[in-house]
Amino acid sequence: MRGVPARGRPRAGEKARLTDREGFLAWAFLLPSVVYLTALVAAPFCLTVAFAFSDANSAAPSYRFAGLRNFRAIFRDDVFWRALGDTLALTGLSMALVVFFGMILANVLLADFRGKWPVRLLVLLPWTTPVALSAISWRWLLDSAYSPVDPILRDAGVLHGGASLLGRPPLATASVVAVHVWRLTPLAAVILMAGLAAIPRDVGEAARLDGAGFWRRLFGVTIPLTLPVIVVAAVFGAAVTFADMAVVRVLTGGGPGASTQVLPALAYHRGVEDGDMGQGAAIALFLFPLLLAGVIGVLRAVRRPEDANDGEADGEEP
């Protein structure tokens, strides 16, 4: 003991290093991400707002304030209103289907069955494949000289004449929805799997012992307990769908006759291809309120359901 006096005592000579201070570390660790995200998300966002009120175009990169002119122009534009309506309808319909199929798929993927590994691999394909490539493959499958679907639809009398599947407005829209649902269902299923796996096993079994059948367990226990996760899956899916321009661009190119035009693709078309950055930015800005609604949805969902409506009088009846 006496031979090593320095060991027993705190090493007073050495100052506590900066790396030992939690407050400093927290900031040092977090700051790069915060700076990066602020610089590359907040700044471009402000710039987008600025563009929306300017007459900037790609030919003359000077900035001149133009007031509400861009907005007045797009409000007068039928294509814009069509695109806005289509974006909302597409997103809403896709998400309803994605959550429905995602719930089924999540339950199946959590069950035990033989050959699970290849099934999971194939099921993940739509999610992991670059969306533009998926869209190419779908276009090839649905609407090409080599399509196996085309002759079937012709035989069934759904298609006739020169128009192809993606050349007919209602069918083209349905195809866009189908591709979105196809692409996002696996993602939703993965998120929902996490939610379902978090339900304590005992609780589900207690419901079985309490005599509840499949449907009562589903609507009385499973869905209420996974509701926050369902909302998260739906909002994330919706954010991806309504901001997506790849599917529409590759699959239908917005056609036929602007019948499948969506806001992001329209913004790209006006802002980049037509070179009118002001108008493009104004159109893109319309994505923002929808985004905000989604954010609020997520924030409310992550509050636990156990906390919600506590002590409220019981009025619910199945």
Binding site: D202, V203, A206, D210, G211, A212, L225, D314, E316
Partner: peptide, 29 residues
């Protein structure tokens, strides 16, 4: 199936339905 056996089980974890009030928990069966 469990529901036809007329047995009731109290789990080690109690397994109450976390989103339901006590009244609705008891009422559920």
């Amino acid at each position: 199936p469990p529901r036809l056996r007329r047995v009731a089980m109290v789990f080690q974890s109690y397994a109450l339905y976390p989103h339901k009030t006590v009244r609705h928990n008891i009422e559920f069966p």
